[in-house]
Structure formats: C-alpha cells, structure tokens
Measured scan of single mutants.
Amino acid sequence: MGFKLLSKLLVYLTASIMAIASPLAFSVDSSGEYPTVSEIPVGEVRLYQIADGVWSHIATQSFDGAVYPSNGLIVRDGDELLLIDTAWGAKNTAALLAEIEKQIGLPVTRAVSTHFHDDRVGGVDVLRAAGVATYASPSTRRLAEVEGNEIPTHSLEGLSSSGDAVRFGPVELFYPGAAHSTDNLIVYVPSASVLYGGCAIYELSRTSAGNVADADLAEWPTSIERIQQHYPEAQFVIPGHGLPGGLDLLKHTTNVVKAHTNRSVVE
C-alpha cells in the first residue's frame, strides 16, 4: 500500500471513529477524501466538511520552486461564519470567499490569524475590503508590521502568557507558548472536538522541520505538551499544512522538532 493511500485511509478511519463516538456532533463529509496538494491548482481553494458547521479550507501556493498546501478553518456561528487564517495570499483568499459563498452561503463576518507569517495573514486586506472584521493577538499584529505583512485590524486580548485561553464565538483560542513562531495560536472547536494546530503542528508525513527561522526550538516541545494537557479530548487535529489526523500529530511534531534540534547540535 502506497504512503499517500495509507495517509488518506488514516484520515478516513479517524473521521469514521469520530462519527461513531459522537453521532450528534459529527456529520463528516462523505463526498470524498481530504484534498491534497496535487489536486488543488494554485489560485483555487477546496472546502472539506469535518463536522456539522465545521470545515477546513485548503489552498496551495508556490514557494521556492515548489507547491505547498495550506489549511485553515471555518466555523459556523449562528447565521454567520468565523474564518481562521487566510488562504495564503490575496488571490487565494478572494477564491476562498467565493467558494464559501458557493458552498455554504453564509457571510464571513470575523477572521482570526493564528500567527504573523504570510500563509496566515496574506489576504487580510481582501477580507477587510469584503467587510470582514480581522483579528490577531497584539504580538501577531506587531510582528506582521515588522515583517511588512498585512496586519489584522483588531487585537485579541488575554493571550499574552503561555497557557492563556479565551473564548471567541464558537471557538476557544489558546496560546501554548512559542513553537513554530513566538505568537502562534491554537484554535479548538469544543462542539466538535476539532483542534486546529496551525503551523505549530505537523502532518504525519512530514519528517523535516522546514521553516524554523522564527521558531523557538527549545520551547516548542513544552508548548505541545500544554496543548495535549489542555485538549486531551480532541479527536480531529488539523495541521497548518497537509493531512489531518488525531492527537498523534502532536507527538510526531515533537519528535521531528527534537530530531532537528539534535542534528543542529551535532553539526
């Protein structure tokens, strides 16, 4: 069995187990497998329904001669939608809004960016022009300005110390501490036991640490421990890039980060 097929099978099995364990909360999309990078042309966006009122959005972007996937989250909030992270750029984010209108038909009224990198804030200006209120932590807003990236308009308070959590509509926002970046936030959907790890969490097929220019490698494993301790009931975990899975993604990420750190020390 090929690795790609095995990865998709694991996603399907995880979703099936969740649907059985929580039949009222989960209505997993039966329309197909989780979209992969090879299936999404740059400039297009796919939506994948995880649970009743919960979707991931998947886009792709060219970077350094390669094409990478990027995940975000959409959560229903009454007759409105909360968006977590842009679709990595203005063109993708405009396509995301169009796809949401086509498939869901509810307005996106608020959006949260989970850290300051372009795959999370690139497209904020498109959201703002569409009347979406954009939010991020003060740290993310400051770092985005320093980096020359787009800056969300509103500040999220109460997320300055490791372990801080605040309720934001249908989700809980959690600051686990520094990891992929010093400002990275985690998003949890309690009604569906869905954990969105953003770039602080890796997919299972990833074996290298990737972009760690703004990471705190020493603190990252401790931050992941905080996530595990705060959300032990999480059933569906979405990484910032690639295929979702279960809580095993947290341990896998820790292993990859520690291996990278150990290699760096040896070198």
Rank of each mutant, 00 (worst) to 15 (best):
H154D: 13
S30T: 15
L6M: 04
E145C: 12
L81F: 10
A129D: 08
D79T: 10
L73S: 09
L143T: 12
S193V: 07
N211D: 07
S27R: 13
S139H: 08
F116T: 12
L249T: 09
T86L: 11
S162P: 14
V54W: 01
V75Q: 02
V146N: 03
L10E: 13
L106D: 06
V67E: 09
Y135A: 05
S70Y: 02
T36M: 09
A15D: 07
V257T: 06
P190L: 04
K258Q: 05
N262D: 11
W55M: 10
R142G: 11
C199V: 00
N262K: 04
P23C: 10
L247K: 02
G163F: 03
Y68I: 09
S56M: 15
G123A: 02
D64M: 15
A192L: 04
T14M: 15
L143C: 09
P190R: 06
L97T: 14
V187K: 00
A90H: 07
N255M: 08
S22L: 14
K91V: 14
T109G: 11
S162Q: 07
F3M: 05
F63L: 09
N262Y: 06
A218D: 10
G169H: 10
G78H: 06
V146M: 12
T207R: 12
L249A: 13
S139D: 12
N71D: 06
P221T: 14
L250E: 11
V37Y: 06
A25L: 09
L159Y: 03
D79S: 07
N92A: 08
A98H: 14
G242D: 02
I186C: 12
R76P: 10
I74K: 01
G177Q: 00
G105P: 12
S162W: 10
A213I: 13
V126M: 04
V28T: 14
D77M: 03
G242C: 02
G53W: 09
V11E: 11
S181Y: 01
D216C: 04
D85V: 00
G242H: 06
H230L: 04
G32A: 09
Q229C: 09
G246K: 09
Y48S: 06
P138S: 14
Y231I: 15
V265W: 08
L83G: 11
V132D: 01
L24P: 06
L10C: 14
L204N: 13
G89Q: 12
S56T: 10
L195Y: 00
I224F: 05
D64S: 12
S62N: 15
I58D: 14
H241Y: 02
G131S: 11
L243R: 07
P244H: 14
H241L: 01
G72W: 00
G163K: 11
P221M: 07
L250Q: 03
H57M: 02
T261N: 03
I20T: 11
G89F: 13
E33M: 12
G123V: 00
E39G: 08
V45S: 12
A133R: 12
I151M: 02
D85R: 00
S205W: 07
I58T: 06
A200G: 07
V257C: 13
M1D: 12
R76M: 13
L81H: 01
V11A: 09
E147H: 08
G169E: 06
I238Y: 03
H115I: 00
S208H: 09
P41C: 14
G89S: 10
A87R: 01
T109E: 06
T182M: 03
A129I: 04
E33P: 03
A95V: 11
A133S: 04
P244V: 12
V11F: 11
V67P: 06
A66C: 13
H180P: 00
S62D: 08
V124P: 01
G32L: 09
N262I: 07
D29R: 10
K8F: 00
P41A: 08
F236S: 11
D248Q: 13
V37E: 07
F63E: 14
I104Q: 14
E157S: 08
A215E: 11
G122I: 02
K8A: 09
D79C: 12
T222I: 13
L47M: 11
A215R: 10
Y175G: 00
G246P: 03
V266W: 14
G197I: 12
T109K: 08
G163N: 04
V257R: 11
W88V: 12
I186Y: 02
H57C: 15
F26P: 15
E147G: 07
L204P: 11
I238A: 12
D183K: 02
D85I: 00
L127I: 06
G78E: 07
A95D: 06
D183E: 10
D164Q: 09
V28R: 07
E145G: 09
H260F: 04
G158I: 14
A15W: 13
E44S: 10
T36Q: 10
G43N: 14
L47I: 05
Y188M: 08
L6G: 08
S56K: 09
A129H: 14
G78R: 12
E101A: 13
G53L: 09
L13E: 13
A59Y: 14
A111C: 09
G198H: 00
A129T: 12
E157R: 07
G198C: 01
A218S: 10
S160G: 07
R167Q: 10
F116H: 15
H230V: 07
D29M: 09
G169P: 04
F168N: 03
H230F: 15
T134V: 11
H230S: 06
H230Q: 07
H117A: 00
I201H: 02
K251Y: 05
E44P: 06
E150A: 05
A179V: 02
D183F: 00
E267Y: 07
I186V: 09
L47R: 02
A165P: 03
P232L: 14
L83D: 14
A94K: 06
E157C: 11
P232T: 06
L159I: 05
A213N: 03
G2T: 12
S30Q: 04
V266S: 15
D85P: 00
R206D: 04
V67I: 04
A200T: 05
S56L: 07
S161Q: 13
I50E: 10
T253I: 01
E233H: 11
L5Y: 05
S62P: 07
Y175I: 03
A215I: 14
L173N: 00
K4G: 03
N211I: 11
V146T: 08
V194E: 00
I58C: 06
E44H: 15
L156A: 06
S162R: 08
R110Y: 04
I50P: 14
G240A: 05
G65K: 11
D125R: 09
A192P: 14
N184Q: 07
S7N: 02
P69G: 05
V11C: 13
I201N: 00
V108K: 01
G148K: 08
V45W: 01
V11L: 12
V237W: 09
Y175T: 05
S191L: 10
E219K: 03
P190M: 03
F26W: 06
Y188E: 03
G148N: 03
V189P: 00
L195S: 00
D125F: 08
A87L: 02
N184D: 03
A130W: 12
A200Q: 04
A130T: 08
K8P: 05
L96D: 01
G131R: 09
H260R: 06
R167H: 04
P138H: 04
